[in-house]
Amino acid sequence: MTVDLILGTNNVGGHGKIKTVEAMAEILELYHSHGNKYLDCAYIYPAGFPGEAESFLGELNVTDNGKFVVDTKLDSFRDGAHTEQSIYNSIKVQLERLKVDKVRTLYLHAPDRTVSFEESHRAMNELYKQGKFERFGLSNYNVKEIEEFAERARKNGWVAPSSYEGLYNIVSRRPETDLLPVLRKYNISFYAYSPLASGFFSNIKRGQAPAPGSQFDPATFNGTFNQDWFFKDDLFTAVEKLTEVGEKHGISNNEIALRWLRNHSQLGKGDAILVGYSKIDQLKQNLEYLEGGPLPEEIVQAIDSIWETIKDSAPESVM
């Protein structure tokens, strides 16, 4: 298949779902046994306890002998995070945690609009020249801002963005019209996160309160985002319709969502899907679903039909 898989680590760390280095080692072996090697991390992972995920990967020496390749995201989500000095401070700490000299992709995780993007881009260009990363990534920036970075790179001869992480799944298809055309124009790969809408397809029912500590718990960092994105009547109806058509073919909502994204969406060569999990059995199941091949045509048509009824309620593809 032309669409790569990248293992997410947002649940990794002593305060995450994967709480020990030993448990993470088992996760990595399973992922690698399916022929995969790309890992996605971030300064903030797990949310609220920055550094734990990167430290786990560093302790496991994941890049030894080229077994795994690491992408990570800089400190973000606060005013002043993307000044030149803050960016330099962030990557220094992160490389030390990961026990590496460089990463494959280094991301600006989310826009810091209190700092000029030119200043942030200049810092990224300097780090690129120093060999701290191979690919410049953006995540959660809007279309106009992506174009701004790409055009500045052309004008100044600076490192250009070559990867973009964004929300994309069955009920979040806005990138097909507002984001992907721009990414294709500038030859930027699209890495789709939240393919299962953080469990919305399987773990959430209309009118049911989310479990404490879950991905939709409003008391958590992630839960606030997820409820804002997905807790809408039209989207609950979409999931109920998806369940109905899937049951006719004996295919679960999660399997439908993953197989659609890899085989029927607008992702293509050079793009990737970020694979999440909260335990090893869940990862095993998700990997098997992703290797399942195209869906029955009736299900694909139902997904397209559902999208037409919910597109106005769907989450925005960028912050």
Rank of each mutant, 00 (worst) to 15 (best):
L183K: 06
Q215I: 03
L261Y: 03
G293A: 00
V100R: 01
N65I: 04
C41N: 12
H264C: 04
H15E: 15
S317T: 14
G292F: 08
D233S: 13
M124N: 04
I44K: 15
E240V: 01
F216M: 01
L98E: 01
S86A: 15
I146E: 10
T237F: 13
I256T: 05
R154P: 11
I87E: 05
N169P: 05
A314Y: 06
T114N: 14
L196E: 10
I204R: 10
A53S: 14
Y168V: 07
N36D: 08
E176F: 11
A257Y: 09
L179V: 07
Q208S: 11
E240T: 04
D101R: 13
S120Q: 07
E297D: 15
I146F: 08
E176W: 12
K284T: 15
Q282K: 11
V12K: 10
E96W: 00
V115F: 08
P315A: 04
S305P: 03
H32F: 09
G270C: 04
L106A: 02
G250V: 08
S162R: 07
I306R: 10
S116I: 07
E148Y: 12
Q285C: 12
N36T: 05
G137A: 06
R113G: 04
N11H: 13
K241I: 11
S90V: 09
R135H: 15
K232G: 05
S198G: 09
V12W: 09
Q94P: 00
S214Q: 04
S172L: 09
T72I: 06
N226W: 00
K185V: 08
L267M: 00
P218M: 05
S189H: 15
Q301T: 12
W260A: 06
R152C: 13
L167H: 09
Q282W: 07
K67V: 11
L258P: 01
E288M: 14
R259F: 07
T224M: 12
N222W: 14
H34F: 09
L60P: 10
R97G: 00
Y107A: 08
A123E: 02
V70R: 05
P46G: 05
L98G: 02
D281C: 09
T72C: 09
V100M: 03
W158G: 08
A150P: 12
N203P: 13
R104N: 14
H32I: 02
T20D: 02
Y277D: 00
E52K: 03
F117Y: 14
H34W: 03
G276M: 08
F236T: 04
N125V: 02
A197Q: 06
I280P: 08
G293T: 00
A47G: 12
V159G: 05
K241Y: 12
E297V: 15
T9L: 08
N61R: 13
G166R: 06
E59H: 02
T9R: 04
E176M: 11
G131P: 09
E26T: 13
Y141R: 11
L60S: 10
G250T: 06
L267C: 01
L283Q: 01
E29A: 10
P212E: 05
Y43C: 06
